[in-house]
């Protein structure tokens, strides 16, 4: 899959919550968006922000070939993403993509577990899995029901299960109080594969919860996507390493997706 650097034009920048926004992008020269895999990411250049020097890695949220659009779901987390939040329709955004390995795609019933802005890559992942014939169920963990975004998009792909820390609920959804690890539908035998993206503590708790399940013996049963601080995105600066069974490996080029058993968690 050839990597490239392309100027995209902002089609729309939608503010979804006080922290999350959705950037809809299309190549500025009208060329078709290159091939990508679910779980891959882009590195965007943040212009006109003196405090920002390096590119920012952002998950690919959705690729709509028919509209020639790539969507990025972004959380304001610092100088870089705060600047990106101010982009307006028509602005240009320089993008290096596609980066990283992406999730292993499987058949059967796949559970996609997301927490916070970690739900971002799971929309594209679910859509591609569904198009390939898999059954998709989402398990989304959030502090409060009002932080859930784009539910209709996820519901188009598969059933959506929710956990909220404050116990708030969404009508029509199996919404339970607690963390994703507390949801009653998360149990051994229910799913053929699990794909996860979210905060480190959430992913580690999930890994611990399912560690003894017999299906964990299958390779790639549970894959997690990491977001270590990175510079190049290309596997050359070696800054974003994660400790794995085979030593330090780059999250940007060997990951961001790892079989959870590979990680020294």
């Amino acid at each position: 899959m050839k990597k490239n650097m392309t100027d995209f034009r902002v089609v729309e920048n939608l503010s979804l919550t006080d922290r999350l926004f959705l950037l809809k992008l299309t190549p500025a020269d009208g060329s078709p968006i290159g091939d990508t895999r679910p779980g891959q990411f882009v590195e965007v250049r943040v212009d006109n922000e003196p405090k920002v020097f390096l590119r920012r890695p952002i998950s690919i949220h959705r690729v709509l070939k028919a509209k020639n659009e790539m969507w990025l779901l972004v959380q304001k987390a610092g100088n870089g993403t705060n600047r990106l939040a101010t982009l307006k329709s028509g602005d240009l955004l320089n993008v290096v993509y596609p980066l990283g390995n992406g999730y292993t795609l499987t058949d059967g019933h796949v559970l996609l577990v997301g927490g916070g802005v970690g739900i971002a890559p799971l929309l594209e992942t679910g859509a591609v899995l569904k198009a390939n014939g898999a059954q998709v169920t989402y398990l989304l963990g959030t502090r409060s029901a009002r932080d859930l975004v784009e539910l209709e998009q996820y519901r188009e792909v598969g059933e959506v299960l929710v956990t909220t820390e404050d116990g708030s609920t969404v009508e029509g959804l199996d919404c339970q109080k607690g963390f994703v690890t507390n949801h009653s539908r998360l149990r051994s035998g229910a799913f053929d594969a699990i794909r996860v993206c979210g905060p480190g503590p959430m992913m580690k708790a999930l890994a611990k919860t399912i560690a003894d399940w017999p299906e964990m013996q299958k390779p790639h049963y549970c894959e997690v996507s990491l977001e270590n601080k990175m510079a190049c995105g290309l596997g050359v600066c070696l800054c974003c390493v994660e400790n794995t069974q085979s030593g330090h490996r780059c999250v940007c080029s060997d990951g961001p997706v790892f079989d959870v058993k590979e990680l020294k968690w």
Binding site: F53, L54, A231, L238, C240, N243
Partner: peptide
């Protein structure tokens, strides 16, 4: 090489601590 984290962004620059991996 050294343990993670190995990177700090600074104004117009960065600091690395890769340690010759």
């Amino acid at each position: 090489g050294n343990a993670y984290p190995r990177l700090a962004e600074t104004p117009s620059g960065m600091i690395n601590a890769v340690g010759l991996q």
